[in-house]
Simulated scan of single mutants.
Amino acid sequence: MPTRKQSASIAAIGVTRTQLYVQEDLGWLFREQPTEDYGIDAQVEIVDGDKVRGRLLAFQIKSGESWFDQPTAGGWWFRPDEDHARYWINHSLPVAVVLYDPRTNLCHWQLVNDSTLEQSRAGGWRLLVPEAHVLDRDAAAVFRRAAAGDPFQLRLRELQLSRPWMDMLAEGTRLVVDIEEWVNKTSGRGSITLGIDHEDGKDPEPLANWGVWLGLASYADVVPRLFAWADVNVHEQTYDWADQEFSGGNGLRPYKNGAGEVDFWRLELALNELGKAFVVVDRFASDGLPQLAPPRP
């Protein structure tokens, strides 16, 4: 009979506990990241009341008693390897390491930056995770300050995070957006899932999922702004098969309704001029040679 390693179970519980603390104590959005995102397990988006403003944090989550084996005054030492340390320091988002202790069901955290990440005498890296840094509502102020930025920088962060999806579109992968909109809720509650259409007649392979509350705003108007680097159109095959007629702004509309409660949408993305230009600029900024610039006064 197949068995599951205990370490895998604890790791999953740690992610779930972190998600609960973020959503219930902080009231923010939690998005688990795909496994191929090296060194980052989740993104957390700050919510102000009912406003989602694009302020993001990246979480690396470690679960289990072994991560608490190096106690020190006021907390525990966490020792990342060289690759992870440099990856986090250079990440486009502020990064926090979260340690989940299954003995207490608490999550302890520390931001990763030049002030908190130390190089030991032996040449390795270490990060002090304070015992007092418990993931609860008291962490909100520090996280808000870390995620704050001017609108220009926030937009660049969002584009950088979407770059892998831009690359997929540029390589010919079909990306679709599935939406479930609860039409009888004034909160505009719904879910948005980005996935790959393998054109095999099966459901798309999910890449990311978000819970949203758009209030009275129209999904047809808001969703294209959430994927500003792509043109958004209806997924022709799905709508050809649908037997219901809907109207919608910009030609975007649901293809069916379930029990009078939920509208279902399936939209397709195509890389637009913004996306194409950003891929070129981001590639240059990552790999290009330093440029001559006017000297600072």
Score class of each variant (00 low, 15 high):
residue 21 Y to F: 15
residue 187 S to Y: 12
residue 11 A to Y: 02
residue 205 E to D: 11
residue 241 W to I: 12
residue 84 H to Y: 09
residue 37 D to G: 01
residue 90 N to I: 06
residue 182 W to P: 05
residue 102 P to C: 01
residue 33 Q to E: 15
residue 15 V to E: 07
residue 27 G to P: 11
residue 24 E to Q: 15
residue 291 Q to T: 11
residue 244 Q to F: 14
residue 61 I to D: 13
residue 108 H to T: 04
residue 188 G to H: 01
residue 28 W to T: 01
residue 20 L to Y: 08
residue 17 R to S: 11
residue 236 E to G: 15
residue 49 G to M: 01
residue 113 N to D: 12
residue 258 G to R: 15
residue 127 L to G: 10
residue 74 G to K: 00
residue 207 L to S: 07
residue 291 Q to A: 10
residue 202 K to N: 15
residue 192 I to Y: 00
residue 90 N to Y: 12
residue 101 D to W: 00
residue 269 L to E: 02
residue 109 W to Y: 11
residue 100 Y to K: 03
residue 21 Y to S: 13
residue 35 T to I: 10
residue 163 R to D: 09
residue 144 R to N: 05
residue 152 F to E: 10
residue 30 F to S: 04
residue 22 V to E: 00
residue 113 N to M: 03
residue 136 D to A: 07
residue 140 A to S: 11
residue 262 V to K: 06
residue 171 E to Y: 14
residue 142 V to C: 09
residue 228 A to T: 05
residue 289 L to D: 11
residue 88 W to M: 08
residue 254 P to C: 02
residue 261 E to V: 08
residue 231 D to G: 14
residue 296 R to M: 03
residue 140 A to E: 09
residue 87 Y to L: 13
residue 132 A to K: 11
residue 87 Y to K: 13
residue 259 A to V: 03
residue 289 L to Q: 06
residue 96 A to N: 02
residue 65 E to G: 07
residue 263 D to F: 10
residue 1 M to K: 12
residue 168 M to K: 10
residue 132 A to R: 12
residue 275 G to M: 11
residue 154 L to H: 08
residue 137 R to I: 09
residue 189 R to L: 09
residue 208 A to L: 09
residue 80 P to F: 01
residue 33 Q to H: 07
residue 180 E to I: 05
residue 1 M to T: 06
residue 114 D to Q: 09
residue 73 A to H: 13
residue 12 A to V: 08
residue 31 R to I: 14
residue 108 H to P: 05
residue 165 W to G: 05
residue 249 G to A: 08
residue 30 F to K: 01
residue 64 G to D: 01
residue 169 L to S: 11
residue 150 D to K: 05
residue 285 A to W: 13
residue 121 R to I: 06
residue 74 G to D: 01
residue 58 A to T: 03
